[in-house]
Design a protein around this nucleic acid. Structure first.
Lengths: 124, 124
DNA sequence: AAAGGTACTTTGCAATACATAGAACTAACT
DNA sequence: AGTTAGTTCTATGTATTGCAAAGTACCTTT
């Protein structure tokens, strides 16, 4: 990824476009990360960061709450040795099913987008 | 894609999740579709439909306007033999560069998401 | 002239990111 | 005991971009 062909304004636009691309994908990411085990929010943020998908608290907490309210996640409080208690989230059975469906939808979407963008690459 | 594991409310949630996934991806799609040639909006909608990415006027027209205002697209009016005149859009040089950068960003994003969701699939 | 079809514009709403401020809890320090 | 620092979680305003729907404008046909 190099920005040498873009001026300052374009860079900002590209950054924004990248941010918009991420919208709507976090549910899948978060459910996938949590699924095999239990996790508390800062760990989730850390895991996302390792995957180079940076997410901030203001995004994650409301998302976790939404998923909990939708019955896809549940949580238990756990005392921590290094500060206040933590909410450990796990995926409900419902959430596992939903996550699998979501993954399928994602795969289909990727295929569709690639069909569009790859076909046109061949013309260049 | 089967919904047999989901009840009515879940289906609605999944549909919504799919809609959210699409957000942010249309710029890339539209630029990719237009790039090799010139196109007017109904044709773009048709092409997207063929690719099973259904987009409505209320979405596309403002998007085209945004891209035009950003200098990535330009248009000329053309008379039509079957109705009112049409706006034919073409990609500017700037738009071609932007589209390539966007494609790279997309590819990176796909890789990152797949890293997250695939790793966890292996645990099931 | 009116009707029908096509093309484009506008607007309100919903959803989900981000930035930021703040509250609450615990451990360590003074 | 009180204060400070670090950690965890909550809430809110803002920005962006889809969708639904209504409406305007233009051309052809009736």
């Amino acid at each position: 990824m190099t920005y040498e062909n873009l001026d300052g304004l374009e860079v900002k636009k590209l950054e924004n476009a990248k941010a918009q691309m991420r919208k709507g994908l976090l549910e899948l990411c978060v459910l996938s990360i949590i699924d095999p085990e239990e996790m508390y929010p800062s760990d989730i943020i850390e895991k996302l960061k390792e995957a180079e998908l940076i997410v901030v608290e203001g995004t994650l907490y409301p998302l976790l709450t939404r998923l909990k309210n939708a019955g896809l996640l549940e949580y238990t409080w756990r005392e921590s040795t290094s500060g206040p208690p933590r909410k450990y989230y796990t995926t409900t059975e419902q959430g596992k099913v939903f996550c699998r469906e979501l993954k399928e939808s994602w795969d289909e979407l990727v295929t569709k987008i690639n069909n569009i963008t790859t076909i046109n690459s061949n013309h260049e």
